[in-house]
Amino acid sequence: MNNKTKVKVENLNCFYDDFQALKDINMEIKSKEITALIGPSGCGKSTFLRCLNRMNDLIEGARIEGIVCIDDYDIYQNGTDVVSLRKKVGMVFQQPNPFPKSIYDNIAYGPRIHGIKDRSRLNEIVEKSLKNSALWEEVKDRLDTSALDLSGGQQQRLCIARALAVEPDILLMDEPASALDPVATSRIEDLMKDLAENYTIVIVTHNMQQAARISDRTGFFLMGELIEFDRTETIFEKPAQQKTEDYITGRFG
């Protein structure tokens, strides 16, 4: 497939005070594809994700240079409505962060913020989002219990459901399967493939097989640089860079 470009990143640099966490990143993320980001810990994957929905704005001392265009709109230009940007670009955090509310209220949080009050509409959204994140069967009888009582893996799926409930265009997922067992993981992977029919997905993963299984394109980060970005088959079968090959084959940490 040769979809159109959804996100275009040009010469992106990101600094935390004096430390440069991203160095001159160029990347085109295609619409309705799954893009996987891989690389060793601390190489800047989460930082890169946060550049795409301007969550770095919230970090004191973070500074960004370069251009990030979503649907041909530069999201760092003056006057950008950050609130609607974040509605459009959903995010699942590396650490599951359920709110200390009921399961139902967690999922309904976003829709309510965006003005949906009708109870039956909310019920529908909650059910659909939980089904999509493969959590519905486990929690359908206790939607009004606290989300903090869920297991770590369930919390991760809850956070996915919560992000889906606002129907974003783009979904950024930071290691969404890190606390999941193989069954739940494969359900999340199936889910992502389904979601990719309608959404553009960017996923950070430390699991090479996962990246290979589900993604259309893969980017390999190393110390703040995007070493290689290509179709997933190419990256995994005949990478252009020696460093990429070393990383994928596990020859380096």
Binding site: M55, L58, R86, K87, Y109, I113, R162, A163
Partner: peptide
């Protein structure tokens, strides 16, 4: 109040005030 509650809410497209008020 953990910062994750604020960030989670902001990432869903809530404004700062909505986040403070509801979360």
């Amino acid at each position: 109040v953990p910062d994750a509650y604020r960030k989670g809410s902001l990432a869903l497209g809530a404004t700062r005030w909505e986040t403070i008020k509801t979360n």
